[in-house]
Amino acid sequence: MSIVGKNASSAKFRRNRWLLTGLLSLYFIYTFMPLFYVITAATKSNQDLFSTFGLWFAEDFSLWENLATLFTIQDGIFLKWMANTAYYSSVSAVGAALFSTLAGYAFAKYRFFGKKLMFALVLGAVMIPQTALVIPMFLMLSSMGLTNTSLAVILPSLVFPPGVFLMWAYIDDAISNELIEAGRMDGAGEVHIFSSIAFRMLMPGFATVLILAFVASWNNYFLPLVMLNKPDMFPITVGLAQLYSTAISGTGGVLLFTVVMTGALVSIVPVIAAFLIMQRFWQGGLGAGGVKA
């Protein structure tokens, strides 16, 4: 609905449209420039990376060579990093979304002893800086011999307080108490009501939390950096960062510079594609949390 169109003279409206579209186009160039750079850099040889203009392609197209180097370097460790990332992020995301949903359902649809206190704790936990906990968690897990395992990365990521908050907000609106009462009248148990009636209705909220938890885990650098020191257990973030420090310190040679950018390209393309495909979920879901808050 456009108020400007109804209200102002159409000349003024047209001028505003040009001006504002222009302004956002400038910001689009800024947003797009780094992504475009990754594409051009990944198609260049190391020499060309330094000698040709950064925001355009070089004459030689070296993408295939770069990809070949990327996937064969250190016995194909990049593929391992991709697999690790997929494993850590998907298990963390599914677990976090499921546990957040269960907890959110309990908070939204039941009255029970200790509810207020527990909900306050969860809200308070949203405020706790995760990174302030990483080093204590490392010290604790290392005294138990659990560092350098996938559990050390996955288990802490299963606790996702913002997910509980979002699901509470979503379920409160999306599932009526009458529906649950009707289920009870029919003699269904509480678990059955949840799994066969409620769960289907809260799928959109579940999908949003799933995406958010996935991004949080796939983004994570500090936690795996601290918990893992075996290169073949790294996720992409830690691996690429290490490849970059090797490149820049010169020990791996200049050779690695384009490989790092090729790795960056390979790892962001599938996620950006997934975001574009699932935009219906995050656009609706992100807003829901914000509005309720």
Binding site: F28, T31, P34, N219, Y244
Partner: peptide, 19 residues
């Protein structure tokens, strides 16, 4: 405008350090 959110901080930082 939302797309960069899908790029992890590590990769965003790497790209910008090249830039």
């Amino acid at each position: 405008f939302f797309i960069p959110y899908a790029v992890p901080a590590v990769i965003a930082t790497l790209i910008w350090s090249y830039l």
